[in-house]
Design a binder for these strands. Structure first.
Lengths: 152, 152
DNA sequence: ACTATTTGGTTTGATGTCAAACTAAATGGG
DNA sequence: CCCATTTAGTTTGACATCAAACCAAATAGT
């Protein structure tokens, strides 16, 4: 297998696993929540809230237009609260509401339960050992695309 | 890091790498071709043509409805040709046209060129060594979702 | 200070994807 | 043989996502 083929194969496999895992999430998240919403809630929880939409978009690797949409959905459900930034009239700040925190916990519970059977099939060490590779690949790809710089 | 966190982290990383690589493809594929179209052309080339839409959908891990759409785009561009199956009135057979083969080569060229700089940053052995893990994970996830059975 | 550029966010239009309902053909049990 | 079930594909309606055009606020260069 030459280098190009290896790379194609690698990314093809990544793409399929990603699709399957996202489909898994979408099937098991409560109340029609989409995996992108779940990821956003988790991000807000992890980094502490008050991030700007653009920062979140960069962290999630989606465009700011997409984030506008995602946040409007979350806001409509009252899982986040969006306030204008007194320091900068252009930007906004996003906060998890108590409902948002509760919902996140509930979602994690559901997913974890649903995952229980399948999780036991994974080799923990195997996943762990490929994490650094994934992170390196992510960094490289992220640096490559000059626009929309890295976040998180 | 407990097991659940590890798994979440793993799939999160997979998701981001997948999104970045797909975005990369979408940016560099010629003529507005989408990565899913590219993947479908490649699949047809690899398995030899004459597959049914459903078989392709399973291999690509998308629903048959999605495949109907993808194939109609490819057919409109005359990159594939779709004929009815004389053996089975319900199903169809998909063939790469000469234009489709040519287009695939062109696309591979473009992508490979675009990838040249970034590809040199990857550690070939590293990618190679994580491939089996990805394939195992894929198999597990694929088996889990009882509907829409595995292909390829 | 004033204009030009950059930056954060929204809007618009297009597209890919999915789930669910539907159609038509094949298969199977009586 | 006939009806019930399964199977392949399409249609419909919803939604996530993107690129490009747009607006408004901040910043910079002169």
């Amino acid at each position: 297998m030459d280098d190009d083929t290896l790379i194609f194969t690698f990314f093809n496999e990544i793409g399929i696993v990603s699709q399957l895992s996202q489909a898994f999430l979408n099937r098991h998240l409560p109340d029609g929540l989409h995996s992108s919403h779940f990821a956003t809630l988790n991000h807000l929880y992890r980094v502490g809230d008050g991030s700007t939409p653009l920062a979140i978009a960069n962290a999630m690797q989606v465009t700011k237009a997409t984030m506008t949409h995602t946040l409007s959905v979350l806001e409509k459900r009252e899982l986040v609260q969006i306030s204008s930034n007194p320091r900068d009239g252009r930007s906004k700040k996003v906060f998890l509401t108590p409902a948002g925190r509760a919902f996140r916990l509930e979602a994690i519970g559901e997913v974890t339960t649903a995952m229980a059977t399948v999780a036991s099939l994974f080799d923990r060490a195997e996943l762990e050992s490929s994490l650094p590779t994934l992170q390196r690949v992510r960094k490289i790809l992220d640096a490559e695309r000059t626009n929309r710089p890295s976040g998180d």
